[in-house]
């Protein structure tokens, strides 16, 4: 019997996913609805809503997202490295230095190119 561990956790995740919808359903049952025209207007600080809200947004968000993916994958590789370090030893240390060093060069490059400038 292995009651603790991942299977239990997945059941928990399932119920945690359903829980907010239970809250919304209860709220739908007990709330008082008095819709008016003004309530159903998009909020724009009291002004008449102007134009479409789904505007194009800046490319800088994508640049940060790309950099993030790079470094997030790095952390995924570093996790098993850290857990298994005692079994591998100096070789792992040198390898990590090279790996992280290359990625650090990446961030220096992005910095020099101005990709990290927020304007």
């Amino acid at each position: 019997m292995h009651l603790t561990g991942y299977p239990v956790f997945f059941v928990l995740l399932l119920f945690c996913g359903l829980f907010p919808f239970l809250l919304f359903a209860i709220s739908q049952l007990v709330q008082i609805k008095r819709p008016t025209a003004y309530k159903h207007e998009t909020y724009e600080s009291g002004m008449k809503p102007y134009g479409e809200a789904r505007i194009r947004f800046d490319v800088k968000f994508y640049l940060y997202a790309l950099l993030f993916i790079l470094f997030d994958i790095e952390t995924i590789f570093l996790f098993p490295w850290a857990v298994a370090y005692e079994k591998v030893g100096v070789f792992a240390l040198v390898e990590m230095l090279i790996f992280v060093g290359i990625l650090a060069l990446g961030i220096v490059y992005a910095w020099r190119k101005g990709a990290l400038r927020w304007q």
Partner: peptide, 10 residues
């Protein structure tokens, strides 16, 4: 919990 859940048509 008892507040009206407002959703605009857009």
């Amino acid at each position: 919990l008892t507040k009206e859940d407002i959703m605009t048509p857009v």
